[in-house]
Amino acid sequence: MLTVKLKKNEDRRLRAGHLWIYSNEIDTEATPIKAVAAGTLCRFSDTRGKILGVGYINPTALLCGRLLTGKADATIDTNWFQRRLVSALDLRKRLYPTPHYRLVFGDSDGLPGLVVDRYDDVLVVQMTTAGMEQLKPLVLEALQRVLKPRGILLRNDTASRELEGLSMYEEVIGDVPEVVDVIESGVSFKAPIRGGQKTGWFYDQHANRDRMAPYARDARVLDVFSYVGGWAVRAARFGATSIACVDSSKLALDSALVNAEINGAALDVHQGEALDVLKRLRGEGRLYDLVIVDPPALIKRKRDTDAGTEHYAALNRQAIQLLAPNGILIACSCSFHMDASELQRILLRESRAAGRRLQILEQGGQSPDHPVHPAIPETRYLKSFVCRLS
């Protein structure tokens, strides 16, 4: 196996528990890597030759190495993947009474470049690195051994694959329906895994939706970026008196209506760009007791920070204008490049500009099936504030 040597002192982050190696940290004179195939398994060593562990390398990427294990003599085979999957499964079985959760969350589960969402006997898998793509046969065999799924959908169509020089594709193994069942805290949903966003359902907001219960009771609710109605339908089950959904996707809103019908709820849906719809609702004099603003990542790269920050501000500005006195705003961000303190600053500034007094009641993050790797800040990405505006 190839041994890739790091420059002096560039092993410190790995020794502290991190899993990433950047191209400028590699001693390319001692170990030239230009001709190495993307995704090749290798050992990483410090400048003295001490092995730091086994991982994979992609010489064409800026983030060119990922550590799979700190064991120098590890064999990365189906049995190795099976052990990692069993460990990940043990955690989720403790957390959830039904088999609906994110089974693998990349680095945090010791499987960098791999995401697996479970919908009972159907799995949706994403491989975002060349190394994990090369290891795909082992991953699939291990999943078959551990879970014996009816079907596996490979949604390898995420834009992050382009950074690794990978093509985007979708592949079906076994029996994979267009729509699958999801159960969240006892509430049933249908999720469109074939044509929906990302892997079909946003498990990372499970805990935050649970937290919504006391605020949705007897409330007029507006769910912005509603997707298939995860927040909206949960609000209905918590006793909301009316629910409106806003999304740009007709497929998403049609799915939200189906999910509402399953649960005996009624939705008022508005298709269009969020800011445009919010301004229209404000012009119509609408008021809501609870507004949820849960947009997609608006700051995908650091250079998008200024534009994305203004977008978050504009969305929450309009949401505040639609809140009744003493209304509740649930403001979320899944952009890693916006930290919680910045989102809080936006909420304070916009509430003061609107002449409203802001109280932060609760603060949340991603659900525990998206665990945080303590050495990798990027794995802590979701922020959620529950605010009262009087």
Rank of each mutant, 00 (worst) to 15 (best):
3 T>D: 02
4 V>I: 15
5 K>Y: 15
5 K>L: 10
16 A>V: 04
17 G>F: 07
19 L>H: 11
19 L>Q: 09
22 Y>F: 15
27 D>K: 08
29 E>F: 08
32 P>K: 09
34 K>V: 10
43 R>A: 15
46 D>M: 01
51 I>H: 00
51 I>Q: 03
53 G>K: 10
53 G>W: 03
54 V>P: 10
63 L>C: 09
65 G>A: 01
65 G>V: 00
67 L>K: 04
69 T>D: 09
71 K>E: 14
71 K>L: 05
73 D>Y: 09
78 T>D: 05
79 N>A: 15
85 L>R: 00
87 S>G: 09
90 D>C: 10
93 K>G: 04
93 K>E: 14
93 K>V: 12
114 L>H: 02
115 V>E: 05
121 D>S: 14
123 L>F: 08
124 V>S: 01
127 M>A: 10
127 M>L: 15
127 M>Q: 14
132 M>H: 03
136 K>N: 06
146 V>M: 12
150 R>N: 09
153 L>E: 04
156 N>A: 07
159 A>L: 03
164 E>W: 03
176 V>A: 04
178 E>K: 13
185 S>W: 06
187 V>I: 15
188 S>W: 15
188 S>I: 11
192 P>T: 06
193 I>A: 09
205 Q>R: 11
212 M>E: 07
216 A>P: 07
218 D>H: 14
219 A>T: 04
222 L>Q: 02
229 G>H: 07
234 R>W: 04
239 G>K: 01
240 A>P: 05
249 S>A: 07
253 L>Q: 08
256 A>G: 14
259 N>I: 10
262 I>T: 10
264 G>K: 00
265 A>M: 13
271 Q>L: 12
276 D>M: 05
287 L>M: 14
289 D>F: 04
291 V>L: 07
300 K>C: 10
302 K>G: 11
307 A>L: 13
307 A>Q: 13
316 N>K: 07
318 Q>F: 13
319 A>W: 12
326 N>T: 10
327 G>N: 11
328 I>S: 07
336 F>S: 04
337 H>R: 02
344 Q>H: 15
345 R>W: 06
345 R>F: 04
345 R>S: 14
346 I>T: 12
347 L>K: 03
347 L>S: 02
356 R>Q: 12
368 P>E: 12
378 E>D: 12
379 T>P: 13
382 L>P: 14
383 K>L: 03
385 F>T: 02
385 F>V: 02
